[in-house]
Amino acid sequence: MEKKPLADTVVTDFSSILPPRKKSWLMSPSADSAFRYLTAGLAVFLLALVTALVVSMVYNSQLSLSRFGLSFVFSTTWDPVKEIFGALPFVYGTLVSSLIALIFAIPISLGVAIFLTEQCPYKLRPIVLTLVELLAAIPSVAYGLWGIFVLVPFMRNYINPFLEGTLGFLPLFKGPSYGIGLLTSGIILAVMIVPIITAIAVNSLTAVVPTQREAALALGATRWEAMQVVLLNARSGIIGGVILGLGRALGETMAVTMVIGNRPEIAVSLLAPAYTMASVIANEFTEATYDLYLHALIEIAILLFVITFIVQAMAQLLIRQISKGKTSYAKAN
């Protein structure tokens, strides 16, 4: 494959591709179709891989699937000692922490995207965008470490007492503050998904034809009013980006495991420790001492896979819709 470094687009030396004197099999049409089947085989391999993923996980969770059935998802008891397994506390923790992340991340990402497309000086734009995207490159275990030693003490000493003092009458913000918990993990997740939502929002906003905006401006609209027209046009792409961010937040493991407190209970307070689907797998998988326990954890993995599969499929449909004319929609992942 690595034969001769040709110039980027201009080919100057044709000796390597000119037909050799003798007819060889490599020149024949059957070589071409062999090549075609080879690459098609690799594509089919990817298909087989995803199928194997589903089949193997279902096969290895059958003990738990047959014993608990659908009640697995709705039962709140997770007690490995008594061999009772219910996933609801984890489903709750995953959904609520991701929801908190979206509440923080959506306005901030939109703000950054609007700043980048509307206000930012042209030369600064790639620099700011690169910096924002670097946030997505930082590994989640590094976020977790930062969370444990910087964010958790900060939440414990400043934010949580403040929330209790001002909004403490709401059950959402009651209770002893450990610093760890749903709110803290939501904030870390928000930081992690901002670059994803921002990147796709910027792409969707720049994909809107400029005449829309210019027409609004010509009618005497302020820049913000014109921006609303653009936002409206870019909505399906932006929603796609938000859903993609949601998918990432739902499946995020390490950073959340390190700051959520890992307690399998459903508490009303956002300041209380909780547990997510991904973090219970990460924490307990190597400690699962008997088969049913292991199968229950794999069933949680299936649940997580199904949820992220649906979310991902929705995001792809929405993003495809807007960027049909455009190439390359997301480099964020």
Binding site: V44, L47, V311, Q312, A313
Partner: peptide, 23 residues
């Protein structure tokens, strides 16, 4: 395949870990 590649990109990495564990 294109769709599955996108899906695979969105599968949480811990689920991939479980898959490899089982096979």
């Amino acid at each position: 395949v294109r769709f599955l590649v996108d899906v695979l990109a969105g599968v949480p990495s811990i689920v991939i870990g479980i898959f490899i564990y089982t096979i």
